[in-house]
Simulated scan of single mutants.
Amino acid sequence: MKWSEICIHTTEEAVDAVTNILYEAGAGGVVIEDAQDFQNTLSGGIADYALDPADFPLEGVNVKAYLPMNSFLGETVEEIKQSLNSLLLYDIDLGDGRITLSEHNEEEWATAWKKYYKPVRVGNHFYIAPAWENFVPEDAGRRVIELDPGMAFGTGTHPTTVLCIEALEKYLPENAKLLDIGTGTGVLSIASAKLGARHVDAVDLDAVAVQSARINVKLNHVKDVVSVSQNNLSDSIDGQYQVIVANLLAELVIRLADENVARLLDHDDGVLITSGIIKPKKDQVTEALSRSGLRVIEEMDSGDWIALIAARVD
């Protein structure tokens, strides 16, 4: 079968939104080529795995998706363009938003993205490695999180995910109860379990992500700790948690705050760890958290991305 590869050149800020648009358009798979990821690999990655600089843009991010070549392809591409334009209404910087198309065979797109996904060191405690590689860590003191993203977005190495893991290493108490909102592939829930959480509730609105997270939880032997379910943000969630982690777009973090996610935090020592926030939107998120009764106790950054750690004012 023939497939058309659509490549959108954009910014780190827009990657999640662009990816969602492509999946909604019926993409059969997605590849993320981030110039910053390549630079990070040069400066701190695992030397055994060499990446080809020709596969990465000089700046920004290429988001590639694969669409079946049929009589509706033209209409699908036009719908994608319209959806991209609508992101501007939410003040999401698309960069140049350049779109290119090329033709591929099914065998090519089905495995193409895997060549970009290699083991990497994350935080002080982990390697994140693809499940299909027999990876033996160089540092025996680090734990391995095995991931198979499947059709869900995320390999666990995006700066926002790394920031969340670093924050979890610092703020997650032993035997804590944790809520992971927008779990995706489940990487943050798995990391929390391996760091000593006694129970993790992982939720995501996307049924594909829920399925992927459940597979990865089983792969990492933490299904006795992590429970994965389909849910819209914090809707209908009761109880209290020592830690809530939400790696989401800034707009969704603001919505969470406005829905008073603070009610779910433990009164004594609960913390909210949130990332996915581009630097220009930090003040908007901070103000929303303040309105909900939370104060920011630490700010972490990686490139253009911010993670905020907040606690209850009372």
Rank of each mutant, 00 (worst) to 15 (best):
S236W: 07
V243D: 00
G196P: 06
T76S: 11
E287N: 14
D235A: 15
N20L: 09
Q82C: 02
H104I: 13
R263Y: 09
I165G: 05
D180I: 06
V15H: 09
V120T: 05
L51V: 07
G45E: 03
S189Q: 04
Y66N: 09
P280M: 11
A191S: 06
V144M: 07
L94K: 04
V261D: 01
I244L: 03
P173M: 01
A17P: 13
W113M: 03
D93Y: 12
P130Q: 00
G74Y: 04
G303W: 13
R255K: 13
P280E: 10
V253E: 02
S229D: 00
N62S: 09
E299R: 14
D224Q: 14
D91N: 15
R143S: 13
L308C: 02
S234I: 11
A250S: 15
V285N: 05
I6V: 15
T274F: 02
A213K: 09
N247V: 09
S227V: 05
A152I: 10
Q82D: 11
T100W: 05
H158P: 03
Q284K: 14
G270M: 10
G270Q: 09
N70D: 15
V18Y: 02
F135Q: 07
D55C: 11
P130L: 05
A197M: 09
G303C: 07
L73Q: 05
A176H: 04
A50C: 05
F126N: 01
I46S: 06
L22S: 03
G141P: 04
V122I: 15
H199W: 12
E12N: 14
A152Q: 08
R214C: 04
G186V: 05
L248M: 08
D235V: 02
C7H: 00
K194C: 02
L172T: 02
S83W: 05
A209S: 15
F135K: 10
H199M: 08
A25N: 05
I277Y: 08
K218S: 12
T76Q: 12
N85H: 08
N70Y: 04
L195I: 08
S83F: 07
L249E: 06
S229R: 15
G303A: 07
S189T: 02
A209F: 13
K218D: 11
A65H: 02
C7N: 13
N20V: 09
R142V: 10
E5F: 04
R291P: 05
A257L: 07
V243T: 13
L219I: 09
V187S: 04
